[in-house]
Design a protein around this nucleic acid. Structure first.
Length: 289
DNA sequence: GTGTTTGTTATCAA
DNA sequence: CTTGATAACAAACA
């Protein structure tokens, strides 16, 4: 479940590896994963290269060096998408694999393979096929960013004033609000639960009932947990690995997510888990009010 | 066979 | 128009 910290980790690492590298070949193993016609996808990308990689929320945007009809390749990993990069030497050493947790590539969940002119390869794996690759024009990319993404945490746009405004008249609950990408981008189920715990706020609270002090705490804790998770190179709970196929270590720092039945690290109460708005929601009834 | 997992969109209601 | 709530999708695993 890659969220902002995981996607940002991939973005930073991958940009160093592939920026400016010429794409020599592309193999589409699952046409469903590519939201363009295969022939057009290949025609635009083979011989081209990515100049840099941008990110908005959980969406990666690979900037094309040669722009024509298309300026960007959008890649969304959704729940089980992976982007794994291998040098030629690593490829020769590796074998085939059939397991989702085994990051030998290619494996049965490999959907697209990019081959660069130095022989290195980038594998898009996606067990559940929710993720996608899509070529868009620069105008289309800007429109998508504008229409679908709210305040981006860890940027100057993330001000307390803008954050507070989101909560003022909203009747929805805190968790649904911070999960809404159109309001704040990049937070998923793990960091929503973690941020609520860190701020001492129950995720079920009505947004408009939060006091200024609570809002300030939540505002700071969201930024804090995202930054810390990036430092730890993401949370590997099920499927996430970085562009080297390595797991992130932030799972060891989680306070509530996946810890139902275990003791709260702060007060020793048992962490509870309920289904809320169709999502698993973890919390401590003593630490969160 | 059943329940569980979640990012996002579709759909419907108010 | 906006807001909110819920179902649906996909696929593997315990």
């Amino acid at each position: 479940m890659p969220e902002l910290p995981e996607v940002e980790t991939i973005r930073r690492d991958l940009e160093k590896k592939i920026a400016g590298q010429k794409i020599k070949d592309i193999e589409i193993l699952a046409t469903k994963s590519v939201h363009n016609k295969s022939a057009e996808f290949l025609k635009v990308l083979v011989g081209n290269n990515f100049s840099h990689i941008e990110r908005r929320g959980k969406l990666l945007m690979f900037a094309l060096d040669k722009t024509g009809k298309f300026g960007f390749l959008l890649i969304h990993l959704k729940m089980t998408g992976q982007l794994i990069y291998r040098h030629k030497k690593q490829l020769l050493a590796g074998g085939h694999s059939q397991s989702a947790m085994d990051t030998n590539v290619p494996n049965k969940f490999t959907r697209v393979i990019f081959t660069f002119s130095d022989g290195s390869q980038l594998f898009f794996n996606d067990m559940r096929r929710f993720g996608y690759l899509k070529l868009v024009s620069t105008e289309e990319k800007e429109k998508i960013v504008k229409n679908n993404f709210g305040i981006e945490p860890l940027t100057p746009d993330y001000t307390f004033e803008a954050f507070e405004k989101l909560f003022k008249k909203r009747q929805t609950n805190v968790k649904a609000l911070i999960l809404n990408q159109k309001l704040i981008s990049g937070i998923g189920n793990i960091y929503a639960d973690e941020a609520c715990f860190d701020a001492g706020i129950l995720p079920f609270r009505k947004a408009s009932t939060l006091t200024k002090a609570e809002l300030e705490k939540l505002y700071h804790k969201i930024a804090h947990v995202l930054k810390l998770a990036i430092k730890n190179r993401g949370t590997t709970f099920n499927n996430y690995v970085d562009s080297d196929g390595r797991t992130g270590s932030h799972v060891n720092f989680l306070n509530v997510y996946g810890r139902d039945g275990e003791k709260c690290k702060h007060c020793k109460s048992i962490i509870l888990k309920v289904k809320h708005a169709g999502r698993g929601t973890h919390y401590c009834s003593k630490c969160q009010k």
